[in-house]
Design a binder for these strands. Sequence first.
DNA 1: ATATTGCATTTTGTATACAAAATGCAATAT
DNA 2: ATATTGCATTTTGTATACAAAATGCAATAT
Lengths: 214, 214
Amino acid sequence: MIEHTDLSKPIYKRLKEMIRNGELKQGEKLVQEKIAERLGVSRTPLMKALLALENEYLVESKPRRGMYLRVLDRKEIIDIYVCREAIEGMAARVLATKKNMSHVSQLKACFNPFTSDTDIDVDAYAKADETFHSLLIKLTDNTPLDKIYFFNDIHDRVVGHGLVRAPKDTLKEHFDIIEAIAIGDADKAEALTRLHINKSKELLINQHKIKTSE
Amino acid sequence: MIEHTDLSKPIYKRLKEMIRNGELKQGEKLVQEKIAERLGVSRTPLMKALLALENEYLVESKPRRGMYLRVLDRKEIIDIYVCREAIEGMAARVLATKKNMSHVSQLKACFNPFTSDTDIDVDAYAKADETFHSLLIKLTDNTPLDKIYFFNDIHDRVVGHGLVRAPKDTLKEHFDIIEAIAIGDADKAEALTRLHINKSKELLINQHKIKTSE
DNA sequence: ATATTGCATTTTGTATACAAAATGCAATAT
DNA sequence: ATATTGCATTTTGTATACAAAATGCAATAT
């Protein structure tokens, strides 16, 4: 039995964990009674959590039939990258317009641990990368943009496909974006951010092509 | 008693209607029992509807305290315009890349009724405008983008502040965007779409300035 | 052997009961 | 007069009972 002010929140987190680590499989039907029993809660707060996941597009509800874990195919992952290009690009633009030095140092702080010549800890870098991209949104102080991105982020994390490109390829790109924000070059900040995300997207698209053509 | 496969959907729609026409006021506390009684349903399906609204950011839940109708201030409306710039701009880009003539004629169809010299019916034009902007997203066939925009659209509709600019100002802009898509000029399609939305945004910002400086 | 039907079982959707927390207000203290 | 306390009332959060729909499978028909 999980304790909280509202059970649905910890249930929601637990479900996401279960989705990410494969305890629940893609396409699987989520039988309310069974999951409720497994988590030691009743269907009422579980339903709340499932509805939140449905709104985030992780779970699909077929009326009268039940809730199903959505299947994310490659097209949808690529579509998410297109969304990220639009949203993060705009975020970088907004930040460049603001030209706030506290923002700049916060962004730099993400990657400072990796500036020495020593080998980069890939896991640590992956986390820094995630922090950087979240921060880019948070710092804009644009609540709707934040909400929208959060929704996307969910997807991305669930996909859980770690880094698409090696740190040595992306580290400079990150610093270039930060620099453009620092000097207040909005066009450049946006363009660089888009390019950065676009490169990963292209890689995913090409992987697909290789796979299907063989 | 409303009939449906799932009561929460009609309840959800009814609530949105109540929000839009002012039956429910901004900032108001939504006491579950009272609304449930008013709609002739129990709290269970009502809760589902309220959670959907919460996820769309129309309603805010304070744990153990209740659900409150969110207050949209001018900053947030402007922030939504920034989101629209990013998302619709990207949508126009995607469509220009596809260069699908069926898309082009569908988009044109929105505004064809207004091409004659006669006076424009503002209400009809407002509807056409809404259709056009929704269509721009739908035609991309990018599900996450669609989801994201839908979320935004909600806001916009609730604000319900009709047209920001007169049809005579925006009609040509719409056709120019469509033309850029038709010739497959992705950069232009995106730039024009952004400019189009940005102009309305600037107008809202200036209105604000006038108000506050007086 | 395959398709169809009917029925028992499972599961969803809704209403409701109940405990715990929040709220509002009168009585009391300062 | 204002602040504080205590208690009745209201409201939320959760569990659960029940009806209606969906499902699965055995029995029967083709």
